[in-house]
C-alpha cells in the first residue's frame, strides 16, 4: 500500500484519537474514553506498519508522537501514596517500619546510643561539652533553658504569640535535617551514619550539660513531649538513608542502579511517614512543649504517654488486616 492511500484511509481515525488525547491530558477523569485503549493499540499497529513499509519520516515521527502521548495516558503510574493516605497512616507506615527493622535497628542504635552515651559522658565529665560545642553556643543554649527565664524554646524572651513563628522554624529546621539525613545515605550510607552520629552527639552533649548544671527540670520537661516524634523521625530518616546505601553496597543479584531504584521506592515511603511525624512534632513543640503553665510532672507523664504511643504505633498498628472498608 502506498503511503498516501494509507494516510487517506486512517487520517480521520488519527484525528479522532488526537482529540481524545487532548481531552485526557486536560482532565484525567474524562468520560467517554472507553474506546481509548483499543484505539491506542490500533495506532501502535499503524506505527509498526508504517515503519515496516518504510513510509516517510514525517508520517512515522508524527505517529510516534501520538503513540508516546497515548502511552503516557494509558500507562500512567497510579501513586499509591496519594490514593489512600489513611491506609498508609493506619497500617502501611508501621508495617513498612517493621519490614525494614534491620535498618531501623541499625539507625536507632547509631542515633540513640551516641545520644545517651554522650549525655552520660558529659554528665560525668562536664568539660567534654566544650570539645564538641563552642563556648558561646553553650552559653546561648544555657540561657534558653534557664529556669528563671520563664519561657522555653530557642529564644529566652519568647512570648506565646511567637508560637506560630517557632512552628514555622521547627518545620523548616527539622524536616530539613531529616531530608539531609536521608539523602546523604546515597553515599554508601556514610552520610546517614554521619548525620545520625553527629545529631546524636550534639543532642546528647546538650542534654548532659544542662542536666549537670541543674537546668535538667526545664530541659527535660520541654523536650520529652515532642522528642517522641522528633527523635524517632530522625532515626527513621536515617534508616531510610541506610537502606539506600545498603542497596549500593550489597545489591544482591541485581545491577546496582536497579537495586538502588527498588530500595529508593521503599525508602521514599518511609520518608513520607517521617514528614508526618515531624509535622506532629513541630506542632507539639510549638504549642505544648513551650507552655510553662503545666507542672513538670504533668509534662513528664504526657511525654511518657507520647513515647508509648509512638512505640505502640510502630510496633502494633496494622498487624491485623481488616476487611476493606
Amino acid at each position: 500500500m502506498k503511503q498516501s492511500l494509507f494516510e487517506h484511509r486512517h487520517m480521520a481515525e488519527w484525528e479522532q484519537f488526537s482529540l481524545t488525547l487532548q481531552r485526557l491530558e486536560r482532565d484525567r477523569k474524562a468520560t467517554g474514553v472507553g474506546e481509548f485503549p483499543a484505539d491506542y493499540r490500533r495506532l501502535c499497529q499503524h506505527l509498526a506498519l508504517a515503519r515496516e513499509r518504510g513510509y516517510s519520516s514525517f508520517l512515522i515521527d508524527s505517529l510516534q508522537q501520538q503513540v508516546l502521548r497515548g502511552h503516557q495516558q494509558l500507562y500512567r503510574h497510579r501513586s499509591r501514596l496519594g490514593a489512600n493516605v489513611l491506609a498508609f497512616i493506619l497500617a502501611g507506615f508501621p508495617r513498612l517500619v517493621r519490614e525494614q527493622w534491620r535498618f531501623v535497628l541499625a539507625a536507632s542504635l547509631m542515633f540513640f546510643a551516641s545520644l545517651i552515651g554522650m549525655a552520660l559522658l558529659v554528665y560525668l565529665f562536664p568539660d567534654l561539652v566544650y570539645n564538641l560545642i563552642p563556648a558561646e553556643q553553650v552559653s546561648e543554649i544555657q540561657s534558653m533553658y534557664d529556669p528563671n527565664a520563664g519561657h522555653l524554646g530557642r529564644s529566652a524572651e519568647r512570648a506565646a504569640s511567637e508560637d506560630w513563628v517557632m512552628f514555622g522554624y521547627y518545620i523548616m529546621h527539622n524536616i530539613g535535617i531529616a531530608f539531609q539525613t536521608f539523602a546523604s545515605g546515597l553515599l554508601f550510607g556514610l552520610g546517614s551514619a554521619f548525620f545520625l552520629f553527629f545529631n546524636g552527639l550534639m543532642i546528647g552533649a546538650v542534654a548532659g550539660h544542662l542536666t549537670h548544671i541543674g537546668f535538667g527540670q526545664t530541659f527535660w520537661s520541654f523536650v520529652i513531649g515532642h522528642g517522641a516524634f522528633e527523635l524517632t523521625a530522625i532515626a527513621l530518616a536515617g534508616a531510610a538513608g541506610l537502606q539506600l546505601g545498603w542497596a549500593l553496597i550489597a545489591p544482591g543479584r541485581l545491577p546496582r542502579s536497579e537495586a538502588l531504584r527498588l530500595a529508593a521506592r521503599k525508602s521514599v515511603q518511609l520518608i513520607c511517614g517521617v514528614m508526618l511525624l515531624l509535622l506532629i512534632a513541630a506542632f507539639i513543640e510549638a504549642y505544648w512543649s513551650s507552655m510553662t503553665a503545666p507542672a513538670p510532672m504533668i509534662k513528664y507523664l504526657v511525654g511518657a504517654a507520647l513515647w508509648l504511643l509512638v512505640a505502640g504505633y510502630l510496633l502494633f498498628a496494622g498487624r491485623v488486616r481488616h476487611a476493606p472498608e
Binding site: 508516546l68 502511552h71 503516557q72 500507562y75 500512567r76 503510574h77 501513586s79 501514596l81 496519594g82 531530608f179 539531609q180 536521608f182 539523602a183 546523604s184 546515597l186 553515599l187 552520610g191 529508593a264 521506592r265 521514599v268 515511603q269 520518608i271 513520607c272
Partner: peptide
C-alpha cells in the same frame, strides 16, 4: 519516568530530595 510515563509524586519527591547529594 524511565518508561516514558509522566513522573509521579514519589519519584519526583525522591529525585528532588536526592538533589542534596
Amino acid at each position: 519516568q524511565d518508561d516514558g510515563t509522566p513522573v509521579g509524586w514519589s519519584a519526583s519527591l525522591l529525585r528532588n530530595l536526592l538533589r542534596f547529594v
